[in-house]
Amino acid sequence: MYKTFQGLDDLQNMVDQAYGVPMTSNCMVPRREVQDLLDEVRTAIPIEMDDAQDVLDRRDAVLAEAEDEAEGMISDAKSERDRILDEARRQADEMVADAENQATATVSRAEAEADRLVSDARRDAEDTVSRAESESQRLVSAGNESYDRSVNEGIAEQQRLVSEAEVVRQANDEARRIVESAHADSDRLRRECDQYVDSTLAQFEESLTGTLRTVTRDRTALRKGAGVSGPRAPRGDGGDRGGRGEHSDVRESSREDGWGTRG
């Protein structure tokens, strides 16, 4: 069959590669080569037909043999299946038994461990409760002592603050008394100073008044002396004496009025 298809393929390639005849759909192929290919195909067809007929003749035998082999394989598969199932059941039973034994042992160990843990927990709980009670009693006692100490310290601090408040009150009273005394002394000193200044100014006023009166009298006397009318006395003993007498009278009157007392 292979040679037949090979010859047909070669013939198809030859036709495809042949030169075409112009103006037509024909082509030119080598006659000798085409005839050789046709002879090969013609020679190969009977041989392959015989092979195909042999296959057809042996079909029933092949099918019967295949069926026998299939039945044998099925029987072997069933036997193997049964064996595997039996082995699996046996192994499963063994595994279940081992698992049950291990589970029983594990449960026993777990129960023993649980009993031990419960016992330890109870013992630890009792110890913890005992320590907690002791600690609570100690804390309560310490709290009571701290409370009493705080109360005593508070009372002492209150008394100290009351004492300090009394001291502060006395200090405030003393400061108020000192301030009032200072104000009284200041008022007294101000009054005395005012009295002293007033008396000094009064004396100064009296002195100025006396001085003004003296100045007024002196000015009046001077005006009177400058305004004397009459012939001037001739120079000589009598005249000189007369002139000196008038001036001496003015000076004496001035002395009497207090003109010379200022110096």
Rank of each mutant, 00 (worst) to 15 (best):
R81L: 10
D36H: 07
D76L: 05
C27V: 11
R89N: 10
M23N: 14
I84T: 01
D68R: 13
P22Q: 03
I45H: 04
V62K: 05
D86F: 01
M73A: 12
Q35M: 14
D60G: 10
Q53F: 08
E33L: 10
D54G: 13
L85T: 10
S25P: 01
D68M: 07
I47A: 15
D39P: 00
L85E: 08
M73W: 02
L63W: 00
D57I: 03
S79D: 15
R89Q: 07
A88Q: 13
A61D: 11
D51F: 01
I74W: 03
D36G: 09
V34A: 15
M73G: 04
E33K: 13
R59S: 10
Q35C: 12
M49K: 12
I45T: 14
R89W: 06
R59D: 09
A44W: 04
R31C: 06
D68Q: 13
D68T: 11
L63C: 07
I74F: 10
L85K: 02
I47W: 03
S79Y: 00
A52Q: 10
V62M: 01
A70T: 03
D68F: 02
D51I: 04
D57P: 01
L85R: 03
E67D: 15
T43W: 01
D82F: 05
A64M: 09
P46S: 08
E40F: 02
Q53T: 07
V41A: 11
V55S: 06
I74P: 01
D50S: 11
P46L: 07
A44E: 15
A44D: 12
D36K: 11
A88V: 08
D54C: 11
S75Y: 03
P30A: 05
M28D: 06
A70I: 04
I84A: 15
D86H: 06
E65I: 00
L85P: 00
V41Y: 08
A44C: 12
A64F: 01
G72E: 14
P46I: 05
C27E: 01
P46H: 06
I47D: 07
T24D: 07
D39E: 09
I74T: 12
R32N: 08
A88T: 08
L63I: 14
M49R: 10
D57V: 07
E87G: 13
P30N: 10
E87A: 15
R90N: 06
A77H: 03
K78Q: 12
E69A: 15
A52K: 03
R58E: 11
E48M: 08
N26L: 14
A61Q: 11
C27F: 09
E69W: 04
N26Q: 07
V29R: 04
A70E: 13
V41H: 01
A44P: 07
R90M: 06
T24F: 04
E87Q: 14
L56T: 04
E69Y: 04
G72Y: 00
C27P: 00
G72A: 09
I47K: 09
